[in-house]
């Protein structure tokens, strides 16, 4: 990664997201490494939990607002807030400000947080303008554009640009890379059969690419697709893109066994 002048390092607050925090810490470490390699000072506030999206999407704005307030307070003093998820980044960037319609002070703070919130790959490419060098990953991958990353955060070419710098990696695009995987937060629990039809179509599309590894920037989608791939006995590995970009893709893939027994 390229150097940044050492005068005043950019101070980034890493919003790890609850799914990364609870289920896949290495995505957090990989994200931090990418940011540090790019010359940023990285902090991980302990006061972070969830972005509040489950409540917000269920129409529970009061709870979403309470959670948003905590998040704003925990992150508003950084130069940037970076999120290894298009979905949670979208929540901070596009939905927090609207939660404070009757509170101009908090609304202003929400807007200023929104203005400095970025999805991880977009931040690396668009703000830090770094390239990936010196990292290798042997194999063919395919990339799933998660809905929020694509449509709320404008993330499309950034992950591909970064992947192009990974030695040994070749990207095989899926025909339906922009189609929803059927996760949808609580949707997949409330309407499991519809969600199942959607993720099956997705899995078929992934298999069609012949890629050995599926990457994306949103852990929710990845867990959904990994869960279905495994249930159908398909060996495609599933990882968060940060793991590959940071050269930390040597541990077990999402949902894969720790030892080679499964």
């Amino acid at each position: 990664m390229s150097e940044k002048p050492a005068t005043l390092p950019t101070h980034v607050g890493l919003f790890a997201t609850c799914l990364v925090d609870l289920t896949r810490p290495q995505v957090g470490f990989a994200s931090a490494k990418l940011l540090q390699d790019a010359g940023c000072q990285v902090s991980v506030p302990k006061a972070q939990t969830c972005c509040g999206q489950p409540a917000y999407n269920a129409g529970d704005n009061a709870d979403a607002r309470a959670i948003a307030t905590k998040t704003i307070k925990a992150f508003e003093n950084f130069d940037y807030v970076v999120v290894p998820s298009g979905s949670c980044a979208g929540m901070l960037k596009h939905h927090y400000p609207g939660l404070f319609g009757d509170d101009p002070d908090m609304a202003a703070r929400a807007r200023s947080l929104a203005a400095k919130t970025h999805e991880l790959t977009a931040f690396l490419v668009d703000v830090l303008k770094v390239e990936v060098t010196g990292v290798a990953f042997d194999g063919t991958v395919t990339y799933h554009d998660s809905c929020s990353a694509l449509r709320e955060m404008g993330v499309k070419r950034q992950p591909r640009r970064l992947l192009a710098g990974v030695g040994g990696l070749s990207l095989k695009e899926a025909k339906e890379s922009e189609t929803c995987c059927g996760f949808g937060g609580l949707f997949c629990v409330k309407y499991p059969e519809i969600s199942g039809r959607m993720v099956d179509a997705k899995v078929d599309d992934i298999v069609d690419t012949g890629a050995g590894t599926l990457l994306s920037g949103d852990l929710g989608c990845l867990m959904n697709m990994a869960g279905r791939l495994h249930r159908r006995g398909i060996a495609t590995e599933v990882r968060h893109i940060a793991e590959v970009l940071a050269g930390m893709a040597d541990g077990p893939a999402i949902g894969a066994a720790e030892k080679k027994t499964d």
Partner: peptide
């Protein structure tokens, strides 16, 4: 609902 059709990582 999740685990009728998918494994849970």
């Amino acid at each position: 609902g999740w685990t009728t059709l998918r494994d849970l990582p």
